[in-house]
């Protein structure tokens, strides 16, 4: 029951974030870790060598190197990049 209360709080917080957010002004691509299987296709196409792999083998975008070209979005077989 308490877990449900926490979930509701989290949902409320997320909803607040959505409502409070201004239009997307800062483009950043993020990898949905639960959908990534570390296949390497994104780093194969990345023109800035901005993708590395964490200790669990999941892809991570180094935001300081990413030029927001979205090429990785197109090739990801699991549609894990958003």
């Amino acid at each position: 029951m308490k877990a449900l209360v926490w979930l509701c709080l989290l949902l409320l917080l997320t909803t607040c974030l959505v409502v409070a957010c201004k239009q997307s002004t800062f483009t950043e691509y993020t990898i949905d870790r639960s959908s990534c299987n570390g296949c390497g296709e994104c780093s194969r196409v990345c023109p800035n060598d901005a993708i590395y792999y964490d200790t669990l083998g999941k892809a991570v975008i180094d935001q300081s190197r990413c030029s927001k070209c979205a090429k990785c979005v197109a090739v990801c077989p699991n549609s894990a990049i958003y």
Partner: peptide, 11 residues
């Protein structure tokens, strides 16, 4: 001060 959206997804 102001909150900006970077990205979101529903799956």
């Amino acid at each position: 001060d102001t909150l900006y959206l970077i990205s979101n997804q529903i799956r």
